[in-house]
């Protein structure tokens, strides 16, 4: 399995191909529905004024996301009372909900990888080529197994979004993923969608 260290360079990103299993090591940040909406509204489209600790958080996450990785994940975390945080279960959440936002977020922060499940659509695939970045697929539901590759929780931002929606900064070692959308316009998800559509059409045309 190919080992890739975060932050990731553009050269490494362009060398990754659909179907390639990768073990990721370094620091990444979780972010899902609330985070993407917040990033777009507050800092990218600027339809909402920064409030509370928004600017402070923005400055703190920028260097992590530069060449970095966003993980679509709402973890189960222990040690909430004592702030001795530990990831107990941390598989990926469905990525397609971030389709309207993802490419713009990656562009804005110059981030190099998204980890999630289920794949994403054409806007994100175009962004993969332009920014460039890749989509890494983790195994949905394999939460305890994946949590084992999280060595340490370094911190948390926007805790008030709730545990699943907060931005958790984590140090990972050999985090297991597969590239399913690369920086050359290839998407495993688009291929499977297309092939299965043909079978569906043939099944629908058969008599009962």
């Amino acid at each position: 399995m190919r080992e890739v260290t975060i932050p990731i360079s553009d050269d490494v990103i362009r060398s990754l191909k659909v179907g390639e299993p990768v073990a990721l090591t370094g620091v990444m940040i979780t972010g899902r529905d609330a985070v993407h909406k917040w990033m777009i509204e507050t800092f990218i489209k600027k339809t909402r004024q920064p409030q509370g600790d928004d600017l402070e958080v923005y400055e703190a996450i920028r260097p992590i996301l530069q060449g970095g990785v966003i993980y679509h994940c709402g973890p189960v975390v222990s040690g909430l009372d004592t702030k001795q945080y530990k990831f107990v279960a941390a598989g990926p959440t469905t990525s397609i909900r971030e389709e309207p936002y993802q490419a713009d977020v990656m562009q804005h922060f110059n981030a190099k990888g998204v980890i999630g499940k289920g794949g994403m659509g054409p806007k994100t695939l175009k962004g993969c080529q332009e920014v460039p970045f890749v989509y890494f697929h983790a195994i949905g539901g394999a939460a305890t197994y994946i949590a084992q590759s999280v060595e340490k929780v370094l911190g948390v931002y926007k805790y008030d979004f709730g545990v699943p929606e907060a931005m958790w900064v984590i140090q990972v070692k050999n985090f297991p993923v597969v590239v399913t959308m690369d920086a050359h316009g290839n998407s495993q998800h688009a291929l499977v969608e297309e092939d299965s559509k043909k079978v569906l059409e043939s099944l629908l045309s058969q008599p009962y």
């Binding site: 299993p21 189960v76 941390a90 598989g91 539901g141 305890t144 197994y145 994946i146 949590a147």
Partner: peptide, 25 residues
Amino acid sequence: RGALETILKNVELSRENSSPICQDT
């Protein structure tokens, strides 16, 4: 096949550790 193998490893680990199979409970 890799996905299914990972899934089954996860099933065993979760059972041993009493930890959630999936983080989305």
